[in-house]
Structures are given as structure tokens and as C-alpha cells.
Design a protein around this nucleic acid. Structure first.
Lengths: 115, 115
DNA sequence: TCCCATAGTTCGGAATCTCAGAACTATGGG
DNA sequence: CCCATAGTTCTGAGATTCCGAACTATGGGA
């Protein structure tokens, strides 16, 4: 188990962020971590929305988010704590994360509201 | 040659936009169309940056942008005119496109500015 | 009218990425 | 010491992506 890799904020690339958040499951995971005071264990997120995400896929999703620079993960005993790096990313790419999270939030519940 | 498909603005999904713009080549194409008064032929964009993009790849890129709802393409004689749908997308997802284009713009020329 | 040049599209196969089940590793508690 | 819990890695099937080659559509001559 190699030590988790986290890119420095200046090495974070926009395409990696967009790729990471282009998957609705990952976007939901990231939104959850960000909104929940920036700390969440992995297992707590295995059933976002209506789908159950298998552990291996979840692990891969966290890896993508981590290597994109969106979250920071550290072991705490037997479990993993995931912090959102939203502040750092916001400083580097102003408005990006909030615009993306708003876009997803606006779509999820709003279809079919008009007659 | 089937008639080009363009989604209605209310059918445009954030994940499609993020996926489309997660590729630097496509992001550059879209930025170019958007900045250039919203009209460009395909061939004019075959050598953005330092790489030459083959025609078939270019065609596929335009298709992704079109089906994501980011551009509108129409034949004009022998060539294709590509209009940016930035205004529509902006109305639906405020701040999204500008944040993404700014993120790319900020990265392209600015590495190694600090000592 | 026929033929050619131009501008894009589609086809096909190799390379890459993604998903999820199974097996594995690491940590802490009894 | 052994087991339970929490994640990670392995692996193979299926989906995507890339790009050259062949194809289609439009317009301008001869």
C-alpha cells in the first residue's frame, strides 16, 4: 500500500478537475465531502443517490478525486478521512468549483417543473 | 450524412459539458469559437496550440461539443459554421463556462512565474 | 454536363480507460 | 493470536478514444 499521492496545488490541472467531476457519482461524492464540513469516511459515501457503488469502484473514485487535487485523504486508525481541498482550488481557479456544484445541484431535482 | 443533432438547452447535462471540456484540445476549440464572435469553420481550428489535429479527430471533437450543447453547427455551402451556445448555457448554468475557460487560460501561460 | 477540389463524416482496428467482483493488506479489538 | 472492519490491488470484460483510409456532399470550372 503505497502512501497516497496528493499533487501540490500549483500542479493541479483544470482538465483533471473537469475529468474528475464529469462523473456524476464522483461529483456527488465531492459535493458531499465539501458540504459535510470537509471530512468524510469512504464507507459513508457508498450509497449516494439510488445506486450502491461497490468498494473497488469507490476506491478508484477517491483516487481520481485525490490525484485531481480535489480532496486530501489520510488514514486515521482503520478508516480514511477525506478533506475537501475546495479552498485551495478556489484560490487557484476562482468560481470553478461552485459553478460546477451549482450546475449539478440545479439539475438534480428540477426536471419537469414546467407544465 | 444524418442531419446534425443539437440538444435543447433544457436537456443539456453538466456531466456532458464537463466531459466535453475536460479535453484540452476541445476546450481550446470551444474557447476559440466563443472568443471569435461565435462563428468558425472547422478547418480553421485544425492546428490549435502546437499539435495538428487530424480531420477525423476534429470531426469527433466537434460532435462531442455539439452533443454536449456547447456549440451549434450548420452547413453553409461547402463549409460548416460553428456558433457558440455560450449565452444559452450561461443562462442555464451561471458562471460555469467562464470559470472553466478562465481556469484553462490561467494555466496555459503562467507556470514558472514564481522564483 | 461531367469532373475535380474542398470540407467534413464514417469506418475499422489498436490502444486506452472504466467497472465491478475476487483476493489481498492494514489496523485495532477481544 | 485471531478475527472483523476499511480500503486497495488485481483482473478480465466491455466501453471509449484516437487516427488513417475510404466515403459523401457541395460548388466551381471546362
Amino acid at each position: 500500500m503505497r502512501p497516497l499521492f496528493h499533487p501540490a496545488i500549483e500542479d493541479v490541472r483544470p482538465e483533471a478537475i473537469l475529468h474528475a467531476l464529469a462523473d456524476p457519482a464522483r461529483a456527488a461524492i465531492f459535493a458531499s465531502i465539501t458540504q459535510a464540513g470537509c471530512v468524510q469516511a469512504c464507507a459513508a459515501l457508498s450509497s449516494l443517490g439510488e445506486r450502491v457503488i461497490p468498494k473497488s469502484s469507490l476506491s478508484a473514485h477517491f483516487k481520481v478525486l485525490r490525484e485531481a487535487g480535489l480532496i486530501r485523504s489520510e488514514r486515521h486508525g482503520v478508516e480514511m478521512r477525506n478533506h475537501s481541498r475546495c479552498d485551495e482550488v478556489e484560490a487557484r481557479f476562482p468560481g470553478l468549483l461552485s459553478a460546477i456544484l451549482n450546475a449539478y445541484a440545479g439539475v438534480k431535482g428540477c426536471e419537469g417543473a414546467e407544465p
